[in-house]
């Protein structure tokens, strides 16, 4: 692991021997992964399909539990949390490849959904959703339903939703995977802006090496293992 690449930020995630098995151990998605991610980093996780990168991101988002090993967030063991909803609600934002918006709710309502766990009033939720949608350039789409939006717009709604509770970490699973190149560029630009202007820690799973090149660090995976880590400098070399 390249120490220089991590900078002086405190450790956000620390993983030791993470393993994930499915079908009673017949399928091993992760075969012992160790890494750490520091405050303010933009980490790209790359690798071929089925290498375990999305599984790893789901562990970081506490959407799934490892079969073995430990995963800590800011020193707190999240791999053993019985109910990680507080962590998911307040600490992280998750952006999915297929957007995962709720089809029967408007754009504004989709952004408000995560705020129910924060105790904001109805008015505060609406104002916050409006601000977020303005920031992603969708102030004119507040009352539209997801089916009325383009793919790029849907992903921007999903990004606005991921920011609803002011998380310090953004986890993005192939956020441009379902977008054309123009919309993909807009989404990447938006994510970079969040990383650079708000100092958010960004962990992004991608197939696109062009996007990975923008990261401060790249974790390469193969067959459920981390095979290589690199910084932009090592990319160049």
């Amino acid at each position: 692991m390249n120490e220089a690449s991590k900078g002086a930020g405190s450790v956000v995630y620390e993983a030791h021997g993470l393993k994930k098995n499915y079908d009673g151990g017949q399928v091993a998605a992760l075969r012992g992964v160790d890494f750490d991610i520091r405050e303010g980093e933009f980490v790209a996780i790359v690798g071929p399909s089925g290498c375990g990168k999305s599984t790893l991101l789901q562990m970081l988002g506490s959407l799934d539990k490892p079969s073995e090993g430990s995963l800590s967030y800011r020193g707190r063991l999240i791999s053993a949390l019985e109910d990680p909803s507080d962590y998911r609600s307040t600490e992280i934002g998750f952006v999915f490849q297929s957007f995962h918006l709720l089809p029967t709710f408007t754009v504004s309502e989709n952004v408000q959904i995560p705020m129910f766990e924060t105790g904001l009033s109805r008015g505060e939720r609406e104002v916050r959703a409006h601000e977020l949608l303005v920031s992603v350039g969708l102030s004119h789409r507040l009352k539209h339903f997801p089916s009325e939006l383009s793919g790029g717009e849907r992903q921007r709604v999903a990004i606005a939703r991921s920011l609803a509770n002011r998380p310090s970490v953004l986890l993005a699973d192939e956020p441009t995977g379902n977008l054309d190149s123009e919309n993909a560029a807009h989404v990447v630009e938006l994510l970079l802006k969040l990383h650079q202007e708000l100092g958010m820690t960004l962990v992004l799973v991608t197939h696109d090496l062009g996007i990975a090149a923008l990261a401060t660090r790249t974790i390469r995976m193969k067959d459920g293992r981390v095979v290589n880590e690199s910084t932009p400098l090592t990319h160049a070399s």
Partner: peptide
């Protein structure tokens, strides 16, 4: 099921 998965993923508590 899918929608409930989304609600859980964005931080809704199980009791909610």
């Amino acid at each position: 099921t899918h929608e409930i998965g989304i609600l859980l993923a964005v931080g809704w508590k199980r009791r909610r």
